[in-house]
Amino acid sequence: MRLIIRSDYNEVSEYISTYVKNRINEFKPTKERPFVLGLPTGSSPIGLYKNLVKYHKNGELSFKHVVTFNMDEYVGLPRDHPESYHSFMWHHLFKHIDIEPRNVNILDGNAENLSEECARFEKKIKDIGGVELFIGGIGPDGHIAFNEPGSSLMSRTRVKTLAYDTILANSRFFDNDINKVPRMALTVGVGTVMDSREVAVIITGAHKALALAKCIEEGVNHMFTVSAIQLHSKALIVCDEDATLELHVKTVKYFKSIEHVINNLIGAENVGLQGNIH
């Protein structure tokens, strides 16, 4: 696992967005061989999307041959509701870029048969050859997508009941009225994320420091579902200084030293995007 520490949210966004841009451009996607990208919603990726839009407008990045799969969507919320994840993705990313509508995949929380919808989503990921890069954020309790504490680490896309903590946290988007927050969501499973060829997680803010510590300094634990990435061979966490508050000094120093070694001893030009040495 790689842990990249940056000073604040903006630098974290800068790092991850440059990373995504370089990964897509290096991949040289075509119609026959698209780049398959998993995408989150929430506050963590807003800076990332803003930068991706900027790159697109500058002509540095095209989404013509990028296929996206979003992590989750509320159940029963109208698609055009301002807090739906469809609306989020439209406003923050899709409306600004050249992505083909048919290449966008977001779970339909209003499907007649929700289980079928989840199965269809899984099949679509499988049919296209899996996700190349899944980007995630986490909740303060370490949940990735809507895989709340206690979710199976083998889970696939399914209907999930939201934890009380999540409902409370999300009520700020629903007039601070917890009764307006949908109680259920469709979400990719931990297993779905783990099947992707690479996972990158954005973790910022002091309120997520405990989750980060649990995720990387303790064992794999279904109470902090993001900790499953310890078992992934290509995992990247990008965090800010605030999020490291609960980490051991030793941990922080170690991961920072890796970047130091790459930059000063090996030379960044000799290291590939995913950390491989040429």
Partner: peptide, 13 residues
């Protein structure tokens, strides 16, 4: 027209 609705419903670029 409503762009978001068109994007997700019709799928034509």
């Amino acid at each position: 027209i409503d762009p978001q609705n068109h994007f997700f419903a019709c799928g034509n670029p």
